[in-house]
Design a protein around this nucleic acid. Structure first.
Length: 471
RNA sequence: GGCGGGGUAGCCAAGUGGUAAGGCACGGCUCUGCAAAAGCUGCAUCGUCGGUUCGAUUCCGACCCUCGCCUCCA
């Protein structure tokens, strides 16, 4: 059994066979954020999906080189920048830093490279030069450079690999402003945007005059710079398939002149969008959540991660606060179980249960079928709880179970619940309650328990004695 | 208008040509001084209508509803 992934290029499930058959290095590129604001929960669905893909590959024994770009020059950034007196770098740094903090909060493994668009100008300019040289790009009088789709097709290349396109049937959206520039065809896209007064001091010199790169260009330049002209996986949200990824293919395959049979990217993976309360997220509907918004409501990164991982990545995900509460309960069930096992295992080291791992692996092999994987996890939790309830767990068995969980968690990335240290006054109240219980003064014991509850601590009487738990 | 996803219990969500995983919520029971945690247990015929079949939620057709993309967008 091998890992099967749904490749947007073929619109079908394909066994994952890396370009480098030794498995020693799998190249994976994921489109990262445009750093002009805090990322929202929808963005993080895609990033958590990328993390899940990477973790699954690593779990399967592949060595992954993970690259995620940081778009730090782009229309939206410039628009925001104009409202401030800050420098581009100063402005984008703030949101880049916040983004990385959020990724960490969600327990995502940090990409090995986080290239910034502004640091790859020479590579982008080189790519444009190659396209101009091949006649696939053209310059307009204002100094902008455009990608010519018809010339690209004239070179025997195919435009429309990820999405079936029928330009005759396409209804140009209102966003195609005809007056924007004087490009030759509506579908042509910008490679280099000539400097305009609104750009302020955000511009770079180029053989075609001062300007800045078009949005798609950075991903072609940075991915091939860091992963080579061809690499294994390219991921992103489904909305990026067209035009962003399609244009990346066009730029790369147009400029790099691959030998027959070689391509820019072997597997394209796209995550479906997330809705909030059944509707597309929007600020006007008030259903727009950043990770920070949810954190301030008291939810932890791992609870949010648990929720984002509850559905298959190709299905539209409906995010609700009710669902988040459900994820919290589900995670707590796992946490309780793992904490008990860890306590019993003490410092013993065990080995994972092969059968559980096999069923879990089989589920993940099925195009990252997390829902199926969860059923394996929760069946395992129930089995462990059953054994725990009957006192049938020796420290050795507990150690094996902990090893099993640790292995599964390499993919899930939930980690362990952090046990807060209990303040001395809470411990004192707990001791007083225990004393009251011993003399069967339950009224007093319950009063003390309520007092603790008001302080945010729950009392749990266990066979090993009373314990305090964060409410 | 073109293209592409979905419709499975109160909610989330797998899945299969032979009467439907798992989680949350809810009810009952056990344990407990009472709780909590945990265990046991209860809770669905799979959008509608046809067709194929011994048998369909799963295949085919039609229809209804819903979401997304069509050059800002994870």
């Amino acid at each position: 059994m091998s890992l099967n992934l749904f490749n947007t290029l073929s619109r079908s499930l394909e066994p994952f066979e890396p370009l480098n058959p030794t498995r020693s290095s799998v190249g994976m590129y994921c489109c990262g954020p445009t750093v002009y604001d805090y990322c929202h929960i929808g963005n993080f669905r895609t990033f958590v999906f990328s993390d899940l893909t990477r973790r699954t590959l690593e779990f399967r024994g592949f060595s992954v080189k993970h690259v995620m770009n940081i778009t730090d020059v782009e229309d939206k950034i410039l628009r925001r920048l104009r409202e401030t007196d800050r420098s581009l770098r100063d402005f984008t740094n703030e949101y880049e830093k916040a983004f990385l903090e959020d990724l960490t909060e969600l327990n995502c493994r940090m990409p090995h490279h986080l290239p910034r668009a502004t640091e790859y100008m020479p590579q982008m300019i080189d790519l444009v030069a190659k396209l101009l040289k091949r006649g696939i790009a053209y310059q307009t009088p204002d100094g902008s450079v455009w990608f010519s789709i018809s010339n690209y097709q004239g070179c025997g290349c195919r435009y429309g690999q990820l999405v079936k396109l029928n330009f005759d049937e396409m209804r140009p959206g209102e966003r195609v402003s005809g007056d924007e520039y004087d490009k030759e065809a509506a579908a042509d896209f910008g490679l280099w945007k000539a400097r305009v007064p609104d750009d302020g001091d955000v511009f770079w010199p180029s053989p075609w005059g001062d300007g800045r790169p078009g949005w798609h260009l950075e991903c072609s330049a940075m991915s091939t710079a860091l992963l080579g002209p061809s690499f294994d996986l390219h991921l992103g949200g489904e909305d990026l398939a067209f035009p962003h990824h399609e244009d990346e293919i066009a730029q790369s395959e147009g400029a790099l002149e691959y030998p027959v049979g070689q391509r820019f990217v072997k597997y394209w993976l796209h995550a479906a969008h997330l809705l909030v309360e059944g509707k597309k997220m929007s600020k006007s509907l008030g259903n727009f959540f950043t990770l920070r918004d949810l954190r301030s409501k008291g939810y932890s990164g791992r609870e949010i991660r648990q929720l984002l991982l509850s559905a298959h990545y190709r299905e539209t995900f409906n995010f609700t606060l009710e669902g988040l509460d459900g994820a919290r309960s589900a995670l707590s069930r796992i946490d309780e179980c793992v904490a008990k096992l860890v306590g019993l295992a003490a410092s013993q080291r065990g080995s994972p249960n092969a059968d559980v791992l096999a069923r879990f692996t089989e589920a993940m092999d099925d195009d990252l079928n997390v829902s199926r994987a969860w059923s394996v996890v929760f069946d395992w939790v129930r089995d462990q709880n059953r054994l725990l309830a009957t006192g049938g767990v020796t420290s050795m068995k507990a150690a094996d179970a902990v090893a099993t969980w640790n292995r599964l968690d390499e993919v899930l990335g939930l980690g362990r619940r952090v046990e807060d240290s209990t303040p001395a006054d809470a411990v004192a109240l707990l001791d007083a309650r225990t004393a009251a219980k011993q003399v069967r003064d339950f009224a007093h014991a319950d009063a003390l328990r309520n007092e603790l509850k008001a302080m945010g601590w729950l009392v749990e009487d266990t066979p090993a004695g009373p314990k305090l738990k964060r409410a």
